[in-house]
C-alpha cells in the first residue's frame, strides 16, 4: 500500500496554490492528509500532481470576530479543540471535535480537509450545517462564497470547481443563552458516526422554545437541517411531548443503506438522537437562563 507516483508541489501562498491548481491536470489538494493519504496509499486516489497546502501559512487562522468565528481551511482540528474562545463561544464545536478521530489524527487533520472530504456523517460537516456557515473559495480567477447548505452536491462531492480551493469558513456563533448538544452514535470512540444530531435551542422568557436549529447527518450524502422539525419546535414547551414529535418526524426521513447499516437502523438512530440532542440542548438552555 504505497502511493502511486505524483509530482509534489508545496506552494507558500494561496496565489501560488491557485496557480498550480489552474495549470496542472489531475491535481489534488493535500490538507491534513488524514483522509487523502489513506486513499492514496490504497491507490483509490492517484493524482498526477499533489498540491500540499501545509506550508501556506495564510490558510491557518482562527479568530472570533463579533458574532462569527473565522477559521482558515488549514487550521488544525486540535487548534479548534484547544481554543478557549471556541470552548466558550461555540461549545457545540468543541463537543463535536471530541468525537473526531483520535488525538494523533486531530493533530494533523484540518477544518478544510474535513469539509472538502465531505464524509456524510463527519462531525465538522454536521456542525458547519448547524451553524449555517459560509465557505470562502478562491481560484486563479477570483474568489466566491458558498453557503454551506449549497456545498454538497452528491456523495462525498462538493460544489468546488476543479480549479477552486477552499480557503476558509465563517461560522456564525450561537447567540448567547443557546443550549447546545451534539449526539452521535458510532460503533467505537473516534469512528465516523453512523448518525449524528446536533442542536441549538433558545428559550423565551416563558421557557418556551424560541428558536431551534437541528442538523442531522448520516441519513443521506450530506447533513440536513430539517425545517419541519425546527419549525414545529418553536413555541413548544421543551419536554417529552415536543421531543417525541420531533423524533417521530426524524424517524420518517429517507435514509441510505450500505453493506453494514440498513436504512431502517439509520432512521431509528435519527429518531433516538434527535430526542437526545433536543433534550440535552433544552436542558442547557434552561441552565443558561437560570445561571
Amino acid at each position: 500500500m504505497k502511493p502511486a507516483p505524483f509530482v509534489y508541489h508545496d506552494p507558500r501562498t494561496v496565489a501560488e496554490a491557485c496557480d498550480l491548481l489552474a495549470t496542472r491536470e489531475n491535481a489534488r489538494v493535500l490538507a491534513g492528509g488524514q483522509s487523502l493519504m489513506p486513499m492514496m496509499n490504497f491507490r483509490y486516489a492517484m493524482p498526477d500532481h499533489l498540491i500540499d497546502l501545509n506550508r501556506v501559512d495564510e490558510l491557518a487562522y482562527l479568530r472570533c470576530e463579533g458574532e462569527v468565528l473565522r477559521v482558515g481551511a488549514m487550521t488544525r482540528q486540535r487548534d479548534l479543540e484547544f481554543s478557549p474562545e471556541v470552548g466558550k463561544r461555540c461549545p457545540v464545536l468543541r463537543e463535536a471535535l471530541s468525537h473526531v478521530g483520535h488525538r494523533q489524527t486531530r493533530n494533523r487533520g484540518t477544518l478544510g480537509g474535513s469539509l472538502c472530504h465531505l464524509d456524510p456523517s463527519a462531525e465538522l460537516v454536521n456542525v458547519a450545517a448547524l451553524l449555517g456557515g459560509t465557505l470562502h473559495v478562491v481560484s486563479k480567477g477570483g474568489a466566491r462564497d458558498i453557503p454551506f447548505a449549497e456545498f454538497a452536491v452528491a456523495y462525498m462531492t462538493t460544489s468546488l470547481q476543479p480549479d477552486e480551493l477552499l480557503a476558509g469558513a465563517t461560522l456564525p456563533l450561537p447567540a448567547r443563552g443557546r443550549g447546545h448538544a451534539f449526539a452521535e452514535f458510532a460503533r467505537r470512540h473516534g469512528d465516523f458516526a453512523i448518525v449524528a444530531c446536533s442542536a441549538l435551542i433558545g428559550l423565551d422568557r416563558d421557557g418556551r422554545i424560541a428558536d431551534a436549529a437541528v442538523a442531522l447527518s448520516g441519513l443521506g450524502h450530506a447533513p440536513v437541517r430539517p425545517a419541519s422539525i425546527e419549525r414545529a419546535l418553536r413555541g413548544e414547551k421543551p419536554g417529552a411531548a415536543a421531543f417525541k414529535a420531533a423524533a417521530a418526524e426524524a424517524g420518517g426521513f429517507d435514509a441510505v443503506a450500505d453493506a453494514y447499516v440498513t436504512a431502517a437502523y439509520r432512521r431509528h438512530l435519527a429518531r433516538v438522537l434527535v430526542y437526545r440532542a433536543l433534550e440535552q440542548a433544552s436542558m442547557r438552555a434552561l441552565e443558561a437562563g437560570n445561571g
Binding site: 508545496d10 492528509g33 488524514q34 493519504m37 500540499d52 494523533q104 489524527t105
Partner: peptide, 19 residues
C-alpha cells in the same frame, strides 16, 4: 507508526517525508 513531528503526535504513514 505514531511519531512526534514538531513535538506533536502524528501518523507517520499519513505524512510524506518531504513534509
Amino acid at each position: 507508526c505514531t511519531v512526534l513531528v514538531g513535538g506533536v503526535s502524528a501518523r507517520a504513514c499519513l505524512m510524506l517525508a518531504v513534509q
